[in-house]
Computed example of a mutant assay.
Amino acid sequence: MMVFNVFGRTIGVKAAESGWKLYRVDLTENKHSPLRGYVIPPDVELNDLTQWLDDIFHEMATAENSEVKRLK
C-alpha cells in the first residue's frame, strides 16, 4: 500500500481489480480502514495519484498543511 500525507491526513492507496482503493491509515498503530465515498478511476496512473488526491481533497488544505506528499 502506498501512503500519502494529504493535507495533514494519512491516506493509503492500494491497487485493486477495479482500479484503486482508498484507506484511512494510522501509522502509529499500523492499522488501516477503508475510506468510503471516493472512487479513483481505474485509468489514473500510478504517477498521477498525488495530483488526483490533491484535486479531490484540496478543500482540506490549510496554511500549515498545504500539499500532498507520498510517505511510502
Rank of each mutant, 00 (worst) to 15 (best):
L22E: 02
I11F: 06
M60G: 04
K72F: 12
G8F: 04
K14D: 08
S18I: 08
K14P: 00
V44G: 01
M2L: 15
G8S: 09
A61I: 05
W52S: 03
T28W: 08
E17A: 15
G37R: 07
E45C: 06
T62V: 09
H58M: 06
D43G: 01
L22A: 05
V44K: 00
E67P: 01
K31Y: 12
L46K: 02
V3I: 15
V68I: 05
F57H: 02
W20I: 10
H58T: 12
K21D: 14
E29N: 11
P34W: 12
I40S: 06
K31C: 13
V6N: 08
D43L: 10
H32E: 05
A63W: 15
Y23M: 04
W52M: 03
H32K: 10
A61N: 03
D55S: 13
R36S: 14
K21Y: 12
A15R: 15
G37E: 06
R36W: 12
V68M: 02
W20V: 08
S66K: 07
M2H: 12
E67Q: 13
E45Y: 05
R9K: 15
T10F: 06
T50I: 11
A61G: 01
I56T: 09
K69M: 06
K69T: 05
V39M: 04
D54E: 14
Q51V: 06
E67N: 10
V25L: 06
D26K: 06
E29L: 13
H32D: 09
F57E: 01
D26Q: 02
G19Y: 12
T50P: 01
Q51L: 08
T28P: 03
K72A: 09
R36P: 10
R9I: 07
V39A: 07
N30Q: 14
G12V: 04
K72R: 12
E45D: 07
G12R: 02
S18D: 09
E17Q: 14
I56W: 03
F4R: 00
T62I: 11
Y38V: 14
D48Y: 00
F4K: 00
D55P: 07
K21M: 12
A61C: 04
I11C: 02
E17M: 15
K14M: 10
L53M: 01
W20L: 08
Q51P: 00
N65D: 11
N47C: 10
M1H: 06
S66G: 12
K14Y: 02
E67F: 08
A15D: 09
I40V: 15
G12D: 01
N30D: 11
F57I: 06
E17P: 15
G8K: 03
S33F: 01
D54H: 15
F4C: 00
W52V: 09
I40L: 10
K72W: 06
V3P: 01
R24V: 15
A15N: 10
R24S: 13
E59A: 13
K21P: 01
W52A: 04
M2C: 04
T10W: 02
P42E: 05
R24C: 12
G37H: 10
R70I: 14
R24I: 15
Y38R: 07
G12E: 01
T62G: 06
G12S: 02
L22G: 00
N30K: 15
H58I: 07
M2F: 15
